[in-house]
């Protein structure tokens, strides 16, 4: 017990002994604030659950998600050991939803890893350098923002060819402009501040100021926005899958599964509904998590 009290006291201490301890203390204070938001905790638990399910998918599935058995097609939930029933090829829906979590997580993670850094670099460079650089970068951003993202993603996939990698690239290419806008707005509020001026007087170069002084201040609002956008990314990916331009059969992707189940929606509702529910729950979880993160990281917009 005293050990627990010990590390809590150290994390909340006013006199941390090292840079790492100071950063951990800051994280811990954020966590205490985040913890108070019940809905955000629910979101976090579901998202962590998704990660665990995706990691352990090969051991969690009850059936081979790709093995077809036409004798057992379109079985209702609970029949013959299929907890959530089977689809039109007799494949176990539960197993396919579990494997599909991997695809969803793969898309979300890859899009976030591509789009957020592009938006961050474009936005901070435009905001900090100003002038012609700002004009060129922001007009380019405007061009991307002028198209509805699903339409633009459709066009990219049509040009690159269908498939999960191309869907990821297409979604990433259409989702960075809002991040660039946010990063630029944040940069404009700090570029004239005294602490940036102090770095300039110290002789810091432009790249150093951007990466070490400006970007750390943009990251929190960007994290919030990316988390809130994850739901949209999942929906776009599912939309592309639904239209047959994302994941290709027989890959278990939730959007493609809804699309395939659409034909049986009146008589065998579970085929389309269960992957649809998975999309719904995970999107909602990312939204709740994003709201909670915003309260902690972006105090200006909270409540």
């Amino acid at each position: 017990m005293s050990g627990v009290v010990g590390w809590r006291a150290r994390l909340l201490s006013d006199t941390p002994a090292s840079g790492r301890e100071a950063a951990l203390g800051r994280l811990y204070r954020g966590w205490l604030q985040f913890k108070a938001n019940r809905l955000a905790l629910v979101g976090l638990v579901i998202v962590l659950g998704l990660v665990v399910v995706a990691l352990l998918a090969p051991w969690l599935v009850t059936h081979d998600p790709y093995r077809q058995n036409l004798a057992q097609r379109l079985l209702p939930p609970g029949a013959m050991g299929h907890l959530l029933g089977t689809d039109e090829f007799g494949r176990d829906i539960l197993s396919r939803v579990i494997i599909g979590a991997r695809v969803t997580l793969y898309i979300v993670a890859l899009v976030a890893l591509i789009a957020a850094p592009i938006g961050l670099i474009v936005g901070t460079a435009a905001g900090y350098l100003g002038g012609a650089v700002d004009a060129v970068l922001m007009r380019l951003t405007d061009v991307f923002l002028a198209f509805p993202s699903l339409i633009l993603a459709l066009a990219f996939v049509a040009a690159l060819g269908p498939g999960i990698e191309n869907a990821v690239i297409a979604i990433a290419l259409t989702s960075w402009p809002p991040y660039a806008r946010i990063a630029r707005a944040e940069t404009l509020t700090v570029r004239k501040s005294d602490f940036i001026a102090a770095a300039q007087i110290q002789g810091a170069g432009t790249a150093r100021i951007l990466f070490r002084h400006v970007m750390p201040l943009c990251i929190s609002s960007l994290t919030v926005r990316v988390t809130l956008d994850m739901a949209g990314i999942i929906l776009t990916a599912a939309g592309l899958g639904f239209l047959g331009l994302g994941a290709q059969p027989p890959m278990a992707e939730w959007g493609a599964m809804v699309s395939a189940g659409r034909r049986y929606i009146l008589d065998q509702w579970w085929v389309a509904t269960i992957p649809g529910l998975a999309i719904f729950v995970v999107s909602l979880a990312f939204n709740l998590l994003g709201d909670g993160l915003r309260d902690v990281l972006d105090p200006r917009q909270a409540r």
Partner: peptide, 10 residues
């Protein structure tokens, strides 16, 4: 306003 809010004194 003259100290970076995310940087420790160190």
């Amino acid at each position: 306003a003259s100290l970076h809010p995310r940087h420790t004194v160190d």
